[in-house]
Design a protein around this nucleic acid. Sequence first.
DNA 1: TATTGTTATACTCTATAACTATA
DNA 2: TATAGTTATAGAGTATAACAATA
Lengths: 158, 158
Amino acid sequence: MMSFDTDLRGLVGYNVKRANSSLLVGVGKVLKPFGLRRTTYSALSVIAQNAGIKQSDLAQVLAIERPNLVQILDELQKPGLIERTRDANDRRAYRLTATTAGIEKIAAAAKKLRAFDEHLTKGMAAEERAALIAALRRVEENGAEAWEGREIGQVSTT
Amino acid sequence: MMSFDTDLRGLVGYNVKRANSSLLVGVGKVLKPFGLRRTTYSALSVIAQNAGIKQSDLAQVLAIERPNLVQILDELQKPGLIERTRDANDRRAYRLTATTAGIEKIAAAAKKLRAFDEHLTKGMAAEERAALIAALRRVEENGAEAWEGREIGQVSTT
DNA sequence: TATTGTTATACTCTATAACTATA
DNA sequence: TATAGTTATAGAGTATAACAATA
């Protein structure tokens, strides 16, 4: 007896994709009551931990293109969760800081999201969960390396 | 010394998302020469392994909504990689089969994609890679369970 | 010249409602 | 009535080119 997708299920990439899709709905439901999406949550989390971070640095940390960050920050600034202030030394740049409301918001949302996230590894030992995260970061690094460098698919076909 | 995203990096969900994003570009580059995308590759792979599968069953296997499958199959049918034939017993349903060209296409693409996919787990032992895939499937199951059932975030806050 | 933030745009993936033809 | 496939549509996420202001 064999399932319908044995070939696909042997691929790390396919299982990452399926896990991500499966996550999306739940994360959305957790964040919705806070008026946040995945991207706005991530941005607010980093800003709260790094008061005064520049937009371009934030974009790099989150691996989001600068143009795509604009709307995300607008969405956080409008309800007063963050503030954009001009840098004194470089008047091109904005410095981002979370307001008190923003810090309270991310703390409350993080509590719920962590509970959901731990539910995702239900039945796994703490070391397994840590190993999973470590492995995912390896995949992320290897994936980035693959298209930064030379051609792909030339991986020792001899 | 501490990185900018320690909170986010403690979440399995965030690392899954980052790994998936990192994968996307490379997979796209590998599949492009074959005229395939991630979704068309997945569909063709399952059809090739399951001659005569119905569209609705394929949608369920791939966890894709039926409407979204239509365009994917059009994209495979136009260049003659698959065929849609009416079911004799149920004239509402289509039976999907891969053509010879489709089977050759998926075989060639799979070879390249597997090489890339193995590159993603470079430096990991075979058991680690297998454990990663198993863990991802657990995450996928737990994620689906979370939003099928009752409220989320009520996970033993006592 | 190069960089910061921005606008405009486009492509992919995903999700829902409503239609048609068959059952 | 229920199901299979379809159409239309809308929301996210992601990517690139080009611009104004500033360095």
